[in-house]
């Protein structure tokens, strides 16, 4: 399994990464230069429920650590329970909710 950085990203002000297993693309993710939701991931539907989301997220988190960030903030609608689980599993702390959107803070250690 490897994470490859794209030369360009289709979203402005982001770095795009692709998660591959050999030649097969599993999903992709973005590191965004924003305060809220600085990591965004997408796993292709037929590859889900195998732990790849957690893996991709953890790899992007490692990259962010190198940029010397101390704390990440995620505002996640409750319907995004997969992403919520990934953020919480990665150390995100649920601190409050507003209009069905949960706020998690993830200290970078």
């Amino acid at each position: 399994m490897e994470l490859l950085k794209c030369e360009t990203s289709d979203i402005e002000n982001t770095e795009k990464y692709i998660l591959k297993n050999g030649e097969k693309e599993i999903g992709y993710g973005y590191i965004k230069g924003v305060e809220i939701n600085p990591i965004e991931i997408f796993i292709y539907e037929n590859e889900r429920s195998n732990g790849y989301g957690k893996l991709l997220f953890s790899k992007l988190l490692e990259i962010i650590k190198e940029k010397e960030a101390k704390l990440l903030t995620f505002d996640l609608p409750e319907e995004q329970y997969r992403m919520i689980n990934i953020v919480a599993y990665s150390g995100g702390r649920y601190i409050s909710i507003k209009n069905g959107v949960r706020r998690y803070i993830l200290p970078i250690k």
Binding site: K70, L71, I95, S96, K98, I105, P107
Partner: peptide, 13 residues
């Protein structure tokens, strides 16, 4: 109103 717990730069409440 937006009412939230305050936390420091290290994520401690």
């Amino acid at each position: 109103f937006d009412i939230r717990p305050q936390y420091d730069d290290y994520g401690e409440l």
